[in-house]
Structure formats: structure tokens, C-alpha cells
Design a protein around this nucleic acid. Structure first.
Lengths: 338, 338
DNA sequence: GGTTAATGAACAAACGATTGTTCAAACTAG
DNA sequence: CTAGTTTGAACAATCGTTTGTTCATTAACC
């Protein structure tokens, strides 16, 4: 069995409350230096570690936060989790992970997590389109930090500046001389999808390149969707686009596959740029130019914010993270038609 | 505040112990049908949910298991986690996630997780090469299930039949007429790396293809390592290999990138096959032929085994999962030199 | 030296559940 | 009608902490 306060107290010949006070460094009461030392010696000797469960019961705080993610096998979410786990661990919090798929009816997932007092707070990573999210928050009595999207009614949201990211990507293409720039946008008009579309449109307009809605295609999440859309787009074009700005990594990859299949060389005839950077950007051929987004940082900041809320501090209701940088690789190049 | 047993008891006009017995369906004591119904009504009315922390303290069981992973942004590990989370949730267990990097000195990570009574058991996902693992298990007093590798001294290990997977991959290449088959093996000689190498060698031998150690290269984990190794290998070959069997997904991707860069067409001049299947196999060009391994299932079986151990059942000390199937795609084709 | 103040540590009551024990009321039987 | 047995539910201890309160000592002061 694990050693308890009682074991330490017995060995040191004091009351458990005294041991507790020494360990908690209780200010309201003083302990003689000799006694304190004796206790600390015993604590070390017995390798005492406080029982987190008992403490959680007494304090009504478990020092555990829950993170709810829509899917795990997505590098973006994985990075968010990694960032959150790291930050939480540093602050002495544990991370309980929970899965919330689009399909499964998990309307009481949050309440279950919380009502059974397992978690002090919740980190919720949102899919762009999950509209049910807000109503599922009803009746959840712990602080919630929303990741990857802004929801007005929530006390704290941490998300990327996707608008800026799209501008970076688009400007890069414009700088290379491209004018016929296709945008493969996220279907469903979610938070990030909309911002990226707007960023793309405004970047064009600001630089005097006419915005043509016909060059925008909304595609689903899978690479296959982007592949199909790209094929259709190319086959039906009178004037071939010279560049593609893909809203996500998988979209970019899907587009690239179609281009390969149609024998269109990159970046010679068509440049491709994507958003989100991961190891996978390097395994594509050609390696993919992307706008790197601070996903880890997003997880980290969200965890920090939640822990701040839990310790009674005030936090900004919105934390917006700027894109890190344009990762220049081999999928983009100067426009040959310019 | 959340409702407690006391709230329910007061409302129903009974003692808390009676409420508890009704909810636990205690056999040792009977409760009058009327009382039982009254209690159940109140429970529903107040939406009572037991406090998991209090129960954990009393029962010395938290119904939480910890999963320790070496990295998160790896689709294989992500799938394992997803499988484990799902199975755990179904059995009423929560999953605490913890990160254990190769570098960080986390020799007491396991003990910390356990001694503070946060988890009833541990799922440890192993990196192939992590040799320190075993000694870090010392003094950990909860059941541990090791995932992705066999460790003799452990009571339960769940892992893939990597030997068989390698044979599947190699046989596929042999069937296509290939004889000069390179193997890009995992560096460090870890559990899976060794099995795959052996599977490759034995498949060749069994089919009468001479095994030539010069055709095996050990490479590190990153795609870049495989890319470099492939380039060196090709440039120094008298007889060009006609196929590559890459031990992992990233290895395959790295090799493919080098082949692209050297202008060697796939699969016309060189076929490539990898192990592990994910969305990423579909975004490569050409799409990658792989042996699909049951990673989700591995996580699921490990969680089930751990929960079985925790409920006192006996479990097999080894659970070996066979490769699912060869996913035939466009990176492999008949040998043109045959 | 006797009263008061400060010190140091024990005592005890929670937190919310589970579970062995006790006990009153109702029932059975002789 | 009384002694003995069931039945149904309350009582109480416990899990390992934290923290307000009490209580001896010792020190301090006039």
C-alpha cells in the first residue's frame, strides 16, 4: 500500500494535521523547526506522496482537466493535445482525454465528465462545423475554454488568425505573379473556413487582382474530395488556373494528387500552397509550401487560460494566435504565364 | 453544487446508506419495493450522479487508467489512443493521457501517476528502442499492459505480428517478379524492426530469392533519413533495385521523395511498399501500397486486457494481432526487368 | 511569583461515498 | 400470548486529506 499521512505521523511521532501543515506550508500555524525537520526527514524516508483522490475530495478540486477532441488521428488535433498536456503537466494538472465524434450522440458527454467530479474544467476542441456544441454546454458548471474557434457566449476562446494566414498564402502566390488563383475552401462555412475565404478574397482585392467566385470551390474534409474537385475544376476551365490555395493540409494533398494524375507539373504549371504544417508537408512531392500555424501553442495557451481561470485569475476572453510563418518549399514557384 | 447522496436521502426521507444500496443494487441487504421506487424517483428528479472522487477514495479504485505515449503526432499512436479511449469508455473507465518523450528524464513518471492514486492501471505504448522502459517499471504497483512490443517480464503485452506483415509485403513484391528488393529497416534493432527484417529475409529465402545483406539499410525514424539512405543506395548501386520494402510509413514516404527527385518513376522502375496504413498513404503520389496493421484494435485490446486484470480476470500474457491486409495501391507494379 | 501572552501541537469535523453492524417493528410459530 | 425470527432501514466507521478549534506548555511581564 502507498504510504499515507498517518504513516508519516506515526513514524515522526506527531499528529497527521501537523504533517499536513508542514507539507502544505500552512501560514496560519507555526511548527517548530525541529519538528518540521523531523517530519520532512520521515516524508523523504518513506517516499510519501499525497493521495490525490483524498485531496480532491476534501478540496472539491481534482486538479484534472478534460480535453474533448473530435478526432485523434489528425495531426492538428494531436499537436493541440500535445501542447495542452505539456502545459497542464507543468502546472500540476492531469489531462483526461475524451473523444466526441460528429456522429455519436454525446449530448451529455460534458455533463457526465463534470458532474461526476472528475474534472475541474474543460478544454473543448471544436470542429469547424459543430453547431450543436453550444447547446451541449448548457448546464455544464465548470469553466470551459474553446479551442480552434470563436463562440461568442463562451468566456474564453483560443483560435488562430485564419484570415491572416490566408492572406499570407494568397500574397505569396500573388508575389510569384499568379493571377488565376483557385481557392479550395472548407465546405460548411465553419469558423476557419469563412475566415480563410475572406482572407483570400481581401488579399486579392487589396492587391488589385480581381476576385472571381468561380475560382472558389468548397470541398469536404477528406483528401479525396479535394482531388475530385480539382479534377472537375481543371477539366472545365477555359483558362487554366496557375495556382491553388488549399484551405487545409489534406485538401492541398488531394489537389496535388489530382495534378499528378493529370500530368500537370508542380510548380511549373500550377503552384499549390496549403495551411497547416506538419511532417507530412515534407513527404509530399513536391514538398508543400504551407503557412505554419501554432497548433501546439494553441493547446498550450488554452490549458494555461483554463488553469488561470481555475485559480481565479482573469483571462482574456479571446486569445488570437497569429500564423507563425510561411514555410517556403517546392510546391510554389513563379507564374510562367505572367 | 452537484447533488449528493445526502440530498437524495433527505428528499426521499431515508438514510444515505439506503440510497447507496439501492443504487449499487446491494445483494446483502434488501430494500422494500416502495422505498426503492421512491428513491429511484428522487434520483431521477434531482439528476443525481455519484461523485467519482469520493467513490474512488472509499474503494481505492479510481476507474481511471493512464496511457503513456512516446509522442502524439504520429498516426500510429493516435490510432492506438483512439482505440484505447473507446474501449475504456465503454467499460466505464476514463483515460488519463501522459507524454513520455525520449529525451525528458521521466524515470518517475509511472510512479508519480500511480502513487498519487490517480490511476488503477497503466497502458504503456513503447517506442521500439526504449530500453530504459523496463527499469522505470520498477516499484510501480499497478497492472501494466505494454503496447507495441513484447517485454518478457511483463504480465501482458499487446503487439502486432510484424514478422508476418513483412512477409506479406515482401511476398507481394516477389509475386510481382521482383528479385532485387531493398529493405529499409528501422535503426536500433528494436522489437518491430527486428521482426520485420526477419520476415523480409525469411520470405525471400522461402521463395528461393537470395538474401543479400547489402540490400538492407537501417534508417532513423524521420522521413529525411530514409530519403538520404535511398539516394545513397541508388547512386552506389551497380544493379538498380527494382523494389523497396520500407519498414514504416515515414520511411516509405522518404524513399518515395528521393525517387521523385532522382526522376525514377514509380512503380515503373521501382516499386515501394510500406507498413502501416493511414489517410496519408492516399495522399502520396503514387498512392502507397501498404500492409494495414490493426492499430486501433491494438489499443482496444490492450485497454480490455487491462480492465480485465483490474477486475481480477486472467488474461493472456501475450496478445498478438495479425496484419489486416495488403492494401494494394499504385506504388507497386510488376517488375519490368523480369 | 502569579497572571497573561505566545507558541506548538493535538483534536475533531468535514468532503461523499461504501458497507458491516445494530435495532425497531412486524411477522411467525408454539 | 410470548418467544423467536424476518424484514427494512438507520447507525456508524472508514477511505486520506485539509483546516478551524482547543489545549497544554513555556515564555514574558510587572
Amino acid at each position: 500500500m502507498a504510504t499515507t499521512l498517518a504513516d508519516v505521523a506515526r513514524e515522526a511521532g506527531v499528529d497527521i494535521s501537523t504533517v499536513s501543515r508542514v507539507l502544505r506550508d500552512d501560514k496560519t500555524q507555526r511548527v517548530a523547526a525541529r519538528t518540521r525537520q523531523r517530519i520532512l526527514d520521515v516524508v523523504k524516508k518513506l517516499n510519501y506522496q499525497p493521495n490525490a483522490v483524498a485531496r480532491a475530495l476534501r478540496l472539491a478540486r481534482s486538479r484534472t482537466i478534460g480535453i474533448v477532441v473530435p478526432q485523434l488521428d489528425n495531426p492538428v488535433f494531436a499537436e493541440i493535445i500535445a501542447g495542452a498536456e505539456h502545459a497542464a503537466a507543468e502546472l500540476g494538472y492531469s489531462l483526461l482525454i475524451s473523444h466526441r465524434t460528429r456522429s455519436s450522440d454525446d449530448s451529455d458527454l460534458f455533463r457526465r465528465l463534470v458532474n461526476t467530479n472528475r474534472v475541474d474544467g474543460l478544454l473543448v476542441v471544436s470542429f469547424d462545423e459543430d453547431m450543436q456544441l453550444i447547446q451541449d454546454f448548457q448546464g455544464v458548471e465548470v469553466p470551459i475554454v474553446v479551442i480552434n474557434r470563436k463562440i461568442e457566449s463562451m468566456s474564453c476562446c483560443v483560435y488562430h488568425n485564419s484570415y491572416k494566414a490566408a492572406q499570407l498564402a494568397t500574397n505569396h502566390l500573388i508575389d510569384l505573379g499568379h493571377r488565376q488563383i483557385v481557392h479550395l475552401a472548407g465546405r460548411g462555412g465553419g469558423f476557419n473556413a469563412r475566415l480563410r475565404w475572406n482572407g483570400y478574397r481581401d488579399a486579392l482585392t487589396l492587391r488589385g487582382v480581381p476576385y472571381d467566385e468561380a475560382l472558389v470551390r468548397t470541398v469536404g474534409y477528406a483528401a479525396e474530395d479535394a482531388a475530385t474537385a480539382t479534377r472537375v475544376l481543371i477539366e472545365n476551365s477555359n483558362v487554366l488556373p496557375t495556382a491553388i490555395f488549399a484551405a487545409t493540409f489534406l485538401t492541398a494533398a488531394g489537389a496535388m494528387r489530382s495534378l499528378h494524375e493529370m500530368g500537370i507539373p508542380m510548380p511549373d504549371e500550377i503552384s499549390v500552397v496549403g495551411i497547416h504544417d506538419a511532417e507530412f508537408a515534407l513527404i509530399l512531392y513536391p514538398t508543400l509550401t504551407t503557412v505554419r500555424m501554432p497548433n501546439r501553442e494553441m493547446g498550450r495557451r488554452a490549458a494555461l487560460a483554463l488553469c488561470d481561470i481555475l485559480s481565479g485569475k482573469n483571462v482574456d476572453s479571446e486569445i488570437v494566435l497569429e500564423p507563425e510563418q510561411l514555410m517556403l518549399r517546392n510546391s510554389t514557384g513563379p507564374c510562367r504565364q505572367g
